[in-house]
Design a protein around this nucleic acid. Structure first.
Lengths: 143, 143
DNA sequence: CATGGATTGCAACAAAATTGCAAAAGATAA
DNA sequence: TTATCTTTTGCAATTTTGTTGCAATCCATG
């Protein structure tokens, strides 16, 4: 099943129709190289989809688990959730601002779940954001 | 050195003065039981510190590493950074909304740093947000 | 291809955040 | 302490971001 088909299935299964607006914004997120700001999505939709609808579409995506808000530095951005993009975290370079996606491994997942258990929690989700300096930008003491 | 003295030292070391507004908001964060929304800070400052100044103070705190924005669920909140509050993460209960602070252990830190290394990063900071169900709220299948 | 509920766009509104500038407060030196 | 210069604040106005109500349009179903 293609990502588009899966997307439509999720909508239909919850009694939502696959409309022009929803498909358009989904395609934007799918084609995007990384998480998108609301502003970016609204700009890219200019003349095709109204501001308000972009907000409403994203709101629905979140409700259905199609997309999620994540925080890159200061403001939030939107990206497709783990159903479409493999579960991952973000590593941001404090030097050049580059954001890379990082897959975590089973040992990592296990460790986080144990952390939950020791506090009486059954964990359902987690987000990990990391900041540092990438190989191109050195150790952070480059003048 | 008290937390207040440390706070003033950080300001002075960067050539900022310890003004009424800055001290007031710092005290709010210090006395707070958890992360605060901008709205909470602005409300608590009503009649004493202007809205705009609260924004400016928080902006400065972030720049100086005194406070940081973190994401609890949907919106961001402000809390003092690791210099004042021990390094920790947040676990939010999807049932009752309770947020608890969780200390991670050295093994965890090591694992995260290794994760950085394998991607050519030297990590400086990280934030981990977890969501699940607490012991009071059961496994998430309570009717 | 008709039709009825779901969805959209528009306009107006509300909330959150930012900016410019004059007034007030803080630091410094005499 | 006071004079003076710099930083910080409060206010008003503005911009940006997000929300709401409603009539017009779309779209899955028969």
């Amino acid at each position: 099943m293609s990502q588009n088909q899966l997307f439509i299935k999720i909508l239909r299964d919850s009694n939502y129709s696959a409309t022009k607006a929803r498909l358009f914004v989904f395609d934007l997120l799918l084609k995007a190289t990384g998480p998108q700001t609301m502003h970016q999505l609204i700009e890219a939709s200019k003349g095709i989809i109204d501001r308000v609808s972009v907000y409403r579409v994203i709101e629905l995506y979140e409700k259905l688990g199609i997309a999620q808000r994540i925080n890159i530095g200061w403001k939030y951005k939107i990206e497709l959730s783990d159903i479409f993009l493999e579960h991952h975290h973000h590593m941001t370079c404090l030097g050049c601002g580059r954001v890379i996606a990082v897959k975590d491994d089973p040992a990592f997942e296990a460790m986080i779940n144990r952390l939950g258990e020791t506090h009486g929690f059954v964990l359902k989700q987690h987000q990990l954001e990391m900041q540092g300096y990438c190989d191109r930008c050195g150790q952070g003491h480059v003048s």
